[in-house]
Design a protein around this nucleic acid. Sequence first.
DNA 1: GATTTAAAAATTGTATGCAATTTTTCTTTA
DNA 2: TAAAGAAAAATTGCATACAATTTTTAAATC
Lengths: 226, 226
Amino acid sequence: MPHTLRQKIADLVLNGELKPGDRLDEHSLAERFGVSRTPVREAIRQLGASGLIEIRPRRSAVVRSFDRAELDEAFEAMGEIEALCAARAAVRMNEAERLRLRALIATSEDISARTDRSAALEMDFEFHGLLHDGARNWMLKTVAEETRLKITPYSAALFTMESYNADLDRPHRQHAGIAEAVLEGDAERASTLMREHIAQALISLQKFFDDTAARSDAPKVKDRSR
Amino acid sequence: MPHTLRQKIADLVLNGELKPGDRLDEHSLAERFGVSRTPVREAIRQLGASGLIEIRPRRSAVVRSFDRAELDEAFEAMGEIEALCAARAAVRMNEAERLRLRALIATSEDISARTDRSAALEMDFEFHGLLHDGARNWMLKTVAEETRLKITPYSAALFTMESYNADLDRPHRQHAGIAEAVLEGDAERASTLMREHIAQALISLQKFFDDTAARSDAPKVKDRSR
DNA sequence: GATTTAAAAATTGTATGCAATTTTTCTTTA
DNA sequence: TAAAGAAAAATTGCATACAATTTTTAAATC
């Protein structure tokens, strides 16, 4: 897959090299990827439109950051969208997809047992992606993945942080529960469990936030003013 | 409000000057708005990321077009999202917003009676926008408006077409019904009525499609190939 | 007359340069 | 030492130029 410049820059954010609030310098990005500023600017604008980064006229673009209230809203919205995908997927997934879902949960079981945080993060992506596809609705999938993209810098932090080790099994069990409901074709239950799953993720993330804030580290607040 | 270049170009699409499938020529757009191609390209890329136009490497960008199946999916997704907004708005709207909603319906009554199609289109935007705000969730509002944006070239066609005159009263009555449910705080009913409202819009749009297709006009198909 | 081929024109993708603005650094002052 | 101000550096926004590619037009062939 020929990684586009847009994707390369997005990856800097998604893999955590650039954190929320960090500036994106056009010149150094251009140098880094061996192109001129023009295509870099275009890529940055696109990422701005998709909400991953924030564009401020005459000022450097920065990785989009959310305060707690915004994170609450983002997760509430995502919970509903993911729940919707799960409900549709429960009714519409085909046999091949159902087999893949079953396989995914089995692999996830293993990963969870090995406490492989990096693999768990990938697994999380794949699990939700499978349901987005299974919902058989291009627009819904687009909406779900765009929403997901925006908060990825935060949800990814969950899986990478040390203190989350203990909880690594919980998302797996939740995924397994959702998968079971989906495979049984129980849209209602799949939907409810998914909502709870996302709500739980938010709680973990808030805890993470409070912890890092308490550790007197950079509060990484929004700072939209000045 | 200082219309940005991006907004100006978007407006060309939203007011129907550029129709789905039409090419966006960078040079002529630059000339038209008195700037160079560079900012035009940046604007086009942003609109591409938001899904209003389609970007094809080395080929002119074109206004995004949907075939019938895609339109079905888009409206299904939008129905759910709008229903969600309505449900939340029913519970969360404040007094000021409720008053504005009531006023809006009164004005809409008048517009519908006068068969003012252009005003009806604006009214439709305002009505849904009010519910997006009333849902008190920034992310949800963003998702709703992005979804709405993508299909605007199609839904706007509904209001502008002659044959729709007879049906102009129906969306108004549906809006009134939804507003009533919202004002009573009945989330469940607001949600259901909204879903029906969007489904009805799709049916009208499909009828419109079939009519224009029958009138042997340019079929305006997707033509993603070659 | 329709189809293929070749040339010309138009169009996109990117680099580069410069003015406008912001950010940083350095000085001055309280 | 801290705050304020001025100068310097860095950075963004935009125009322009040119190569690469696509699209259109014209010519040639069947």
